[in-house]
Design a protein around this nucleic acid. Structure first.
Length: 517
RNA sequence: GCUCCGGUCGUCUAGCGGUUUAGGACAUCGCCCUUUCACGGCGAAGAUCGCGGGUUCAAAUCCCGUCCGGAGUACCA
């Protein structure tokens, strides 16, 4: 039988990195096994339902490049793929009836006040907390009929068999054993007629012929309910794969405090989807050897459940940065430009940066200005529209020293702007030397007339150096760099001069002269 | 409280009873490259494998206990 996995989020909010990791595993596993990946919406909770959420999922998954074989947005032979729609179609009703008829489920008419009281009583008396039968598990039919006749609302609970072991086979951890006596009778159908996760997800997984359930480890405690459901229905259970959680750098559950948790935020920050996926896959999974930087194909071909780790993993942004930089450096400059254009075309990028607040700024570093970062990036992309060849040269020079797509904006700014910002410290440090005026004159005369090669630019500067008896090239190179770029760091001087060309060099040297005291 | 899960360098991990003086990667530090910042190369430091017992000729690897961390304990998923 072919492998079928599903990603079944509840549309209550944004798509976070933890959920991305789960889909990624679904996706990689399905691809590796040549199976199908199904997308299903678990919208059985009316109170927490968020209409925009499904769109967020679809959009994020589209960006990240995870495609499904079936789902609400593309259809498929096992539809509908939204549980609310499946409920309307009467799918759950027939199965709950079957369970009731077999005696594995029963109606319970307790009010929420009664349940609260019950828990309070249990707590005070140090009893096992939970619904283990109450008044209804063993109620006689006349009582039930009377309650129905009285119009009382009810839930349908599962009648957990007592005094036995329930075994759950977890693909990562192996056999997990539970005592059925500590399992309260879970609600299967709520008072509003909606199924709970326990019921809907398992019925759907069976109906959709799901073979492996990848989900977070927070589901382990309720997994005996799920395993039991399959048993009581007489269905063969899928393999449960409980993935460890992703935690923040401080060891706590990943939350907004740790910076971005929303996947789209990483896109907006200029991370490449391939690097993100590579990185995310490595949290809780390992191919077994020493390889870390992998292409998508390598990820797919080496993905196995055996490589999954049982312990929680931390989200280490430094490693993501490394992977991202590595990926950027490995791409052709044309491909980098394409990625930047793609990022620019995403509406969320602008929104992210314009509302950006630098919450965890690095000490001794200026606060990050989101609007400025975005406008520098935008300028570059727009500039590239009309000056593609020149822009490509600029990007190529910065490709070695940038970690994010968005960083190209600030890094390349001096290339494309007429009057780059002059770093006052740099000016102070290098423009005070006695030879700078002569140097700038020499620069204009030798480098400002026609396009030279990288080596020729070097020769011109060396020429000045020997003529003036200066020992090292540094005192020549540094002022020139500041004059041309306004900064003390950046690409190789001669390479950068070759990109700028004579006209820009002349203009910039002229302007630099106004800074010389 | 109860139940379940987890525990190898700061971090991600390799390891599946002997080839282990526990390997790799990120981060850190140093050196080299070099006109700067990076990149790249080389190297250093960093884990008595949570702790304590046991099994065994031999344990990070198997068993038991213990501690710590986490999750669940909803008509949420």
């Amino acid at each position: 039988m072919s492998v079928r996995v599903r990603f079944a989020p509840s549309p209550t909010g944004l798509l976070h990195v933890g959920a991305l990791r789960t889909v990624l595993f679904d996706f990689l596993f399905a691809k590796h096994e040549g199976g199908q990946c199904i997308f299903r919406i678990e919208d059985t909770d009316r109170a927490r339902y968020n209409a925009e959420s499904e769109q967020e999922f679809v959009e994020t998954l589209r960006w990240v490049g995870i495609e499904f074989d079936e789902g609400p947005h593309i259809g498929g032979p096992f539809g509908p793929y939204r549980q609310s729609e499946r409920k309307e179609a009467g799918i759950y009703a027939t199965y709950i009836e079957e369970l009731e008829a077999k005696g594995h489920a029963y109606k319970a008419f307790d009010t929420s006040e009664e349940l609260d009281q019950m828990r309070e009583f249990q707590q005070i008396n140090k009893q096992q907390i939970g619904y283990f039968g109450g008044d209804w598990r063993d109620a006689i039919s006349s009582e039930i009929e009377a309650a129905i006749a009285a119009g009382r609302t009810y839930v349908i609970r599962m009648r957990i068999p007592r005094d036995r072991k329930i075994i759950v086979q977890d693909a990562i951890r192996g056999r997990i054993e539970f005592d059925s006596n500590i399992l309260p009778d879970p609600v299967l159908i709520k008072g509003d007629g909606m199924p709970t996760y326990h019921f809907a997800a398992m019925v759907d997984d069976h109906l959709m012929e799901i073979t492996h359930i990848f989900r977070g480890e927070e589901w382990i405690p309720t997994s005996p309910i799920h395993a039991l459901l399959f048993e009581l229905f007489g269905w063969t259970a899928p393999v449960f794969v409980h993935c460890p959680v992703i935690i923040g750098a401080d060891g706590k559950k990943l939350s907004k405090r740790h910076g971005a948790t929303r996947v789209l935020d990483y896109m907006a920050q200029g991370y490449l989807k391939f690097a993100l996926k590579n990185f995310i896959a490595l949290i809780g999974w390992s191919p077994g050897g020493d390889v870390e930087s992998m292409t998508e194909e390598e990820l797919i071909s080496s993905f196995t459940i055996e490589g999954l780790q049982p312990s929680p993993g931390r989200f280490d942004i430094e490693k993501l940065n490394w992977l991202n930089g590595l990926r950027i450096r490995s791409m052709t400059t044309e491909a980098v430009l394409e990625e930047m254009k793609g990022l620019y075309s995403e509406a969320y990028t602008k929104h992210y940066w314009e509302t950006f607040v630098d919450e965890d700024r690095v000490p001794n570093q200026p606060e990050k200005d989101g609007k400025k970062i975005y406008s520098q990036f935008e300028n570059l992309v727009l500039f590239a529209e009309s000056n593609r060849v020149y822009a490509l040269h600029c990007i190529k020079e910065e490709q070695e020293r940038v970690t994010n797509l968005i960083d190209f904006g600030a890094a390349c700014e001096f290339f494309i702007v007429d009057e780059p910002e002059m770093d006052p410290k740099a000016v102070d440090k290098w423009f005070g030397q006695p030879h700078v005026r002569d140097l700038f004159a020499h620069l204009k005369a030798t480098c400002g007339t026609k396009q030279l090669t990288i080596e020729e630019y070097r020769e011109k500067l060396v020429e000045f150096q020997t003529a003036n008896g200066i020992e090292k090239l540094g005192p020549i190179v540094h002022p020139t760099r500041v004059a041309l770029t306004g900064k003390t760091s950046g690409p190789g001087l001669f390479e950068l001069m070759a990109v700028l060309g004579p006209e820009r060099i002349t203009k910039r040297v002229d302007r630099a002269l106004t800074f010389v005291k």
